[in-house]
Design a protein around this nucleic acid. Structure first.
Length: 440
RNA sequence: GUGCCUAUAGCUUAAUGGUAAAGCUCCGCUCUGUGGCAGCGGCAAUACGGGUUCAAUUCCCGUUAGGCACCCCA
């Protein structure tokens, strides 16, 4: 009689080689261990958006690529090198959205939201795509919490409201010590004037600039204020200050934004070097950072005003301000700061069985309890009661229900307190009542 | 997109040009009616492809993925 070992030694069929897969670069799985963070962030964002009076909107993930070229700027990195584009079988040239604002603005026009009460305060939360080199908190598919206030009057109170929302969001997520950086980059009247002055200033010092900045000088002089090269940083100090140059209207607008922030005790830091990468911004721009993670993870919420965007896609001049926050970045910060997540609900009970008959009956009880809204865990595939209770213990469940032959015969069930080890038999029809009583 | 670093089991880490080791986790048993503790046993890995070599997980090259600094950005 062949032993198993001998059988193993028989010549084997050549193994078929099966390709294994990793997720594509920058595309991450959300695992059960991440879920508490996602659940927390999504629920906080949603309830905060509701209380601030924002309504949910979700534009499609695919839009015409041209929408982004027109709004975000042909020259911007987001459009030039980070956009996932594709040609459909019908010949349309589409893009996976790299940001929310253009799509939401498009939807606002397309569906006549400008004819509803103004402003429209819109909230969105979903995946965006940018083809970047991934790092911690920078993924190719990432998720944003996005806010837009569109239409109505160009009122600085809405700029402040967006910032206040994100301030509350960070606080509710227990991300302490966050910093708000804020600036105004003027309007189409004063910005060109400033740009010219800035260009003149830098032209005189062109030789001292780094390579990138010499290129930026031609494309987007404002970005020079963002450079971290020592030589360029030095020059920045003496560069004309935008805040001194913006026009009276912009200046008044900005001053009011700050006053509104003062009114709700949100601290901020004026940063006249703060500019943004997308073309459509005007006036207020802001970025928020978590203490200690500024360098590594970068800005958490960020945004600003974009009054001219709607015009670039064929609409009327529409006051608009918005902001966005990356969910994966929030999670990275929460992990870095070791912000505790409350684990499983203490309201969970565990149902264990002893014996085949009890297993069947337990399945029915399980369904019944779940139908009444109880959170019930089980490990019914395990036959030994010890193994089942071990699972209950591991999951930190405080109350176990045990069903065996004897209980079925008596039409009862054992209710065991796993914390103090005390247990008693309870008639089945009083089980729901008993659980409720003990959970108080 | 550029430069640099990394890749051993689900996780954290050993080791070696010649049989890949441990802790935690997981599964099971001790314990077919009672968990936490303990003991015992089990599953499980050199990311992928190529080269050098008698022999590669180790050395070299490529790919993929992760990370860091840029670029940029949420």
């Amino acid at each position: 009689m062949p032993t198993p070992k001998q059988e193993k030694e028989k010549p084997r069929e050549p193994k078929e080689v099966i390709r294994t897969f990793q997720s594509a670069k920058g595309m991450h799985d959300v695992l059960p261990s991440d879920e508490p963070y996602w659940d927390k962030i999504e629920s906080v964002a949603r309830s905060l958006a509701t209380s601030y009076g924002f309504s949910r909107i979700e534009p499609p993930i695919l839009e015409f690529a041209e929408l982004y070229n027109k709004t975000s700027g042909e020259e911007s990195d987001v459009v030039q090198k980070e956009m996932y584009t594709l040609k459909t079988k019908g010949g349309d040239f589409l893009a996976l959205r790299p940001e929310y604002t253009p799509g939401i603005s498009r939807a606002y026009m397309q569906h006549g939201l400008s004819r509803l009460g103004q402003p429209q305060k819109l909230f969105a939360m979903g995946p965006l795509f940018r083809h970047e080199r991934p790092q911690l908190g920078r993924l190719r598919q990432f998720t944003q919490i996005n806010l837009e206030t569109l239409g109505g009057v160009n009122d600085p109170i809405y700029d402040a409201e967006i910032i206040a929302f994100f301030w509350d969001l960070l606080n509710e997520l227990k991300i302490k010590g966050s910093l708000v950086k804020i600036n105004s980059i003027g309007c189409r009247i004063c910005r060109p004037i400033y740009k010219k002055q800035l260009t003149t200033y830098y032209k005189n010092h062109e030789k001292q600039l780094c390579e990138d900045c010499q290129r930026r000088l031609k494309v987007n002089p404002l970005k020079l204020l963002d450079c971290k090269e020592p030589g360029c940083v030095e020059l920045k100090a003496k560069a004309p200050n935008f805040l001194d140059k913006i026009c009276v209207t912009c200046s008044a607008h900005f001053k009011l934004v700050l006053e509104y922030l003062d009114e709700v005790n949100i601290p901020y830091e004026l940063d006249h070097h703060l500019v943004r990468g997308l073309d459509y911004y005007s006036r207020t721009v802001f970025e928020m950072y978590a203490e200690g993670t500024e360098a590594q993870i970068g800005a958490l919420p960020a945004g600003g005003r974009y009054d001219y965007l709607m015009e670039t896609i064929g609409g009327h001049l529409t006051p608009a301000v918005g902001g966005a926050c990356g969910v994966e970045r929030l999670i990275a910060v929460m992990r870095a700061k070791e912000i505790p997540m409350n684990g499983k609900s203490g309201k969970r009970v565990f149902l264990a069985h002893a014996g085949d008959l009890a297993k069947k009956k337990a399945f029915a009880i399980l369904k019944d309890l779940r139908g009444r809204g109880f959170l019930v865990s089980e490990s019914l595939s395990k036959e030994s009661l010890a193994a089942q209770l071990k699972v209950a213990d591991r999951e930190g469940i405080a109350l176990a229900l045990i069903l065996g032959q004897k209980e079925i015969y008596e039409n009862s069930i054992i209710v065991r307190d796993l914390v103090n080890g005390l247990q008693e038999a309870v008639p089945l029809e009083k089980l729901a009542e008993e659980i409720k009583k003990r959970q108080k």
